[in-house]
Design a protein around this nucleic acid. Structure first.
Lengths: 187, 187
DNA sequence: GTTCACATGTAACCGGTTACATGATTGA
DNA sequence: TCAATCATGTAACCGGTTACATGTGAAC
């Protein structure tokens, strides 16, 4: 599959970037749906260069610090476009360790289950608040967002991540209520 | 992390299972949130046996076919309980290749983007329908679900997967509408 | 002068997938 | 008798993380 390959080609779609820049994108909003460490990125950049999908020029930052700025080649642009327009099957599994635990809830007491769900709810609410702040910032800065906006991709990942977290929170609230119901019956 | 370790210990919580049985669980409803191939499961079962978390007895299916039935040891039960009650941080990234593409939408024409979203919407709706059928089946079979139901874990994964897909579908519908809006403006 | 961000790389290891390999049982 | 399912394993490879390793630049 080599998705990282396409992630890098995609990030280079608007112009040249360094390996460090690419790492930064994965730490920002795109990190909600894809990420990679610098230790994986640098070797991949080398591989993509060898394969002819990207090229680089070396620039100097200050007086000594070398930086490699990568650009898409025509072949790289083609490769990116082919991947973007290809239709992929949706994955059967999207791993979620918390949901794995939830499946084993019969091994927990009511109190233990309630603690687990309360903790998760707290963490998800914090994340939701972070995303809401990012969303408000985006909405404040730009003209009304549409397909033609340069920020449309950013808008897509933010709104999707927001919906994901909202759904998580309301599901957790619903289940927490169920766990605390009828505390008179069996443990 | 070794999450597969805990997934296996968890599946063994109610009694003995073979490696094949464990594989089957990952192909069923639990597969929405965790899965593993048999080529990973068999070596892990061996490792867990060596570590003293599980034991097995060999049974005969028919006249010749050998099957190993695994059970939790006391140490395995402890290990499972410790993991279940531990609070984990939520992951920063949950990978989604479609959303990675979405972030790069500026490299697609309106028509190409519309095609991509239409295809995804179709696939998500199919998945949602499958999950809805499973949910109706569960609701038809069992008494009203509560914390004490033996099927509560099953209920949790099904309802969560349903919410996830519903959210995906409604988000895709919303974005598809945005993509098709104002088709008089720039390409 | 110290801390934080910028900047790039490699090595060892681990988790997971694909492919290779084999055979028995059940039901149509 | 044929196909699907039951049943277990290994080997090669790949994607990703953690740790090791080094150095510059900017701002306080």
């Amino acid at each position: 599959m080599r998705v990282l390959k396409y992630a890098i080609l995609g990030l280079l779609r608007k112009g040249e970037l360094s390996g460090y820049d690419i790492t930064s994108y994965f730490k920002a909003e795109l990190g909600q749906f894809w990420s990679a460490k610098h230790s994986q990125i640098y070797p991949e950049l080398k591989k993509l260069t060898d394969e002819g999908f990207i090229t680089f020029r070396t620039t100097i930052q200050g007086t000594k610090l070398e930086k490699k700025m990568y650009t898409l080649t025509d072949s790289g642009k083609q490769e990116l476009h082919a991947w973007l327009t290809r239709h992929h099957p949706i994955p059967e599994t999207v791993k979620d360790e918390f949901m794995l635990k939830a499946y084993f809830i019969s091994s927990l007491s009511r109190q233990e289950a309630a603690d687990l769900f309360t903790d998760q709810l707290l963490k998800r609410k914090e994340k939701l608040a972070d995303l809401q702040r990012s969303y408000e910032k985006l909405m404040a800065s730009a003209e009304p967002i549409s397909f033609s906006s340069p920020d449309f991709g950013h808008y897509l990942v933010l709104t999707k991540a927001l919906e994901r977290e909202k759904t998580y929170v309301s599901w957790l609230e619903h289940i927490s209520a169920m766990i605390q119901e009828d505390t008179q019956e069996r443990p």
